[in-house]
Design a binder for these strands. Structure first.
Length: 284
DNA sequence: TTTCGTGT
């Protein structure tokens, strides 16, 4: 074979490889976009200002997306969709599992004896009931956990998750949920923040509920760590703008400015029938 | 039916 024909063959092969790479990344992009559209609403959260603390990468799971911060050693948000199902059921709770994608060695016992629960962001019961067993197992990845005080995790937060799945989802048919921790930046920079193992302890947690549609509805909560668990849920209502101010995240980046203003600036409780659900007793 | 930790 002459050097000339070898060179031409290599160029042909390179051309094919470049073509495959282009088509392949195009396919990846379309698939990724399809998954993000299915699991989020009006775009996944992004950072309002690019700082190391708001930087995160998106981990895809069965049934939910998660924004992972390598510098916080924590998830910053999870996003998932819930819909009404005929006979909601969850299988037996699977075990907590390490998530190797985080790189950090977060093991199931990483915050044992810390006084904090391993609190799910994407919840076990609702995800399992709507998305099935594989999705349920993914909610037990340690990347989905944040340290939560027991009275919050098992009582107030549990009551909120129960109301979401048992009341709001049947009422509206479909719901998009974004939830995550809130940290105190001053403590991060001073280095004196409380940790559970490697993990910085959040000072509070937010949950944003969206009813999609031509006239979308939204409800948002911020709940602090120190609660007794019996407080009325509506005591913790906030606007989405409040959540953005506390987290540095930009939710629903694809919304137009006017739609964002209408949805995010205030607290609109009409239609949610909070009177019926805010004071339901704790199960635990 | 829905959360967990601890000790055995």
């Amino acid at each position: 074979m002459s050097a000339d024909s070898f060179l031409r063959r290599m160029m042909r092969r390179t051309g094919v490889a470049v073509l495959f790479a282009a088509v392949g990344s195009g396919l990846w992009y379309m698939q990724e976009r399809e998954v993000r559209d299915r699991l989020s609403w009006q775009g996944v959260p992004t950072w309002a200002e690019l700082t190391p603390l708001s930087l995160h990468r998106v981990l895809r799971n069965d049934g939910y997306l998660l924004g992972w911060s390598d510098i916080r050693v924590s998830p910053l948000w999870v996003s998932y969709a819930l819909q009404a199902v005929d006979d909601p059921q969850a299988g037996e709770r699977p075990g907590f599992r390490r998530d190797w994608r985080t790189l950090w060695p977060l093991k199931p016992d990483s915050y044992a004896h810390s006084g904090y629960d391993r609190g799910h962001l994407a919840p076990n019961y609702a995800i399992a009931a709507v998305h099935g067993r594989a999705a349920q197992r993914d909610t037990f990845l340690m990347s989905n956990m944040t340290p939560q005080r027991p009275d919050l995790n098992r009582r107030l937060w549990q009551r909120l998750e129960e109301v979401v799945m048992d009341r709001f989802v049947p009422r509206f048919g479909r719901l998009r949920v974004i939830t995550g921790p809130i940290f105190d930046d001053e403590f991060f920079f001073s280095g004196v923040m409380e940790r559970a193992g490697l993990v910085e302890v959040p000072e509070a947690f937010y949950k944003i509920l969206i009813v999609p549609g031509a006239q979308p509805r939204a409800l948002a909560f911020i709940m602090p760590q120190n609660v007794s668990g019996d407080e009325p849920l509506d005591r913790y209502l906030v606007s989405i703008d409040d959540v953005e101010a506390r987290t540095g995240l930009d939710f629903f980046p694809q919304l137009s400015a006017s739609a964002a203003e209408a949805l995010e600036a205030g607290v609109q409780t009409q239609g949610w029938n909070l009177d019926e659900v805010a004071r339901l007793p704790s199960r635990f």
